[in-house]
């Protein structure tokens, strides 16, 4: 099974012999790093990474540090079914205290623990082990050299055990240029995902020829952004030879919209040509109430698809 999120095809740069290669599939990377633009970028990529593992039947482990809610929230937004995987042990959420104890263990002990984890996974018959988590903040307290040392150990273990893969994240606000270069050196690839816009509060990504996705909060600080991208998308639809009559805006991960943003969506739809509609999908109740108060019920060319109540069924696609 291939989950929708994993099919979003982020770009991956491989650092082999000084060359950069781009591939279209997360499943091909082993020890990869991400330099995120925002928290929503973090969860977008982490959820896609883990969803890919779940879809491939691999064991998936996430080392949380009071971040499980954010991750599970994004997986829910992406309609990734996790309940059964959590119940049967395919998806392991390592609790905060255990995460901190693991990643701050002395290097030799850390190596034994990771090695044992991988060997246990192999022995249990899982076809793969996909890892992600919150390690850097703890290890950073020991210095950048320590981060590099831990990452070097992990990189060697991953090469020895090809079934295991790890996604690491390095915040550009925490790592300066030299530190970032040092940690990039110990990863075989870097994940580069494209966004149309990301100001740390609102993230806009393209999910199809005439489809956009919003994540975060739309307010006074970014009030013109959504309109700008919707206008460009409509323009693209009108110029396209394919008949795209619906412009889709996925609001699954939009946690807040203010009056100006909600009124803007309603007016944008109303100003579409008669042949086109603006379709809002995955709308959270909070955002739906805002839209309702701002004239959405009377907007003829606006369709609001209510948020689903269930994730996509196993074997289905989101």
């Amino acid at each position: 099974m291939v989950m929708t999120a994993a099919r979003r095809s982020p770009l991956v740069r491989h650092w082999w012999y000084g060359m950069t290669r781009t591939v279209e599939d997360l499943d091909h990377v082993t020890h990869t790093c991400l330099v995120p633009d925002s928290d929503d970028h973090v969860w977008e990529v982490t959820a896609a990474w883990l969803a890919g593992g779940l879809g491939a039947g691999e064991r998936v482990m996430y080392f949380e540090d009071q971040t499980a809610d954010a991750l599970l929230g994004r997986l829910t937004d992406d309609r990734v079914p996790v309940d059964r995987a959590l119940a049967d042990g395919q998806f392991v959420l390592v609790p905060t205290e255990q995460t901190r104890a693991t990643v701050s263990a002395p290097l030799d002990l850390f190596e034994r623990m990771i090695d044992e984890m991988i060997r246990d996974t192999e022995a249990a018959g899982w076809p793969g082990l996909r890892l992600a988590g919150e390690n850097v903040n703890v290890q950073l307290g020991m210095g950048v050299d320590a981060v590099v040392a831990y990452e070097t150990v992990v990189d060697r273990l991953l090469r020895e055990h090809p079934i295991a893969r790890l996604l690491c994240r390095f915040d550009p606000l925490v790592f300066d240029t030299a530190a970032m270069a040092a940690v990039r050196e110990v990863h075989t690839s870097e994940l580069v995902t494209r966004s149309l816009y990301d100001d740390g509060l609102l993230r806009v990504t393209r999910t199809g020829p005439v489809a956009l996705r919003l994540a975060g909060e739309a307010d006074h600080s970014n009030r013109t952004v959504i309109r700008r991208f919707l206008d460009a998308t409509l323009d693209q639809a009108l110029r396209s030879e394919a008949a795209h009559n619906d412009i889709t805006l996925d609001l699954s991960s939009l946690r807040f919209v203010d009056v100006s943003g909600a009124v803007g969506l309603v007016h944008t739809a109303e100003e579409f040509p008669d042949s086109h509609r603006l379709v809002l999908t995955g709308v959270r109740p909070r955002v739906a109430r805002a839209l309702e108060r701002c004239g959405a019920p009377a907007a003829r060319q606006l369709t609001i698809e209510p948020r689903w109540t269930e994730p996509v069924a196993p074997g289905g696609r989101g």
Binding site: S260, V263, H267, E270, G295, A298
Partner: peptide, 8 residues
Amino acid sequence: STQRSGWG
């Protein structure tokens, strides 16, 4: 409904 501002 056509008003752009003044809703808040």
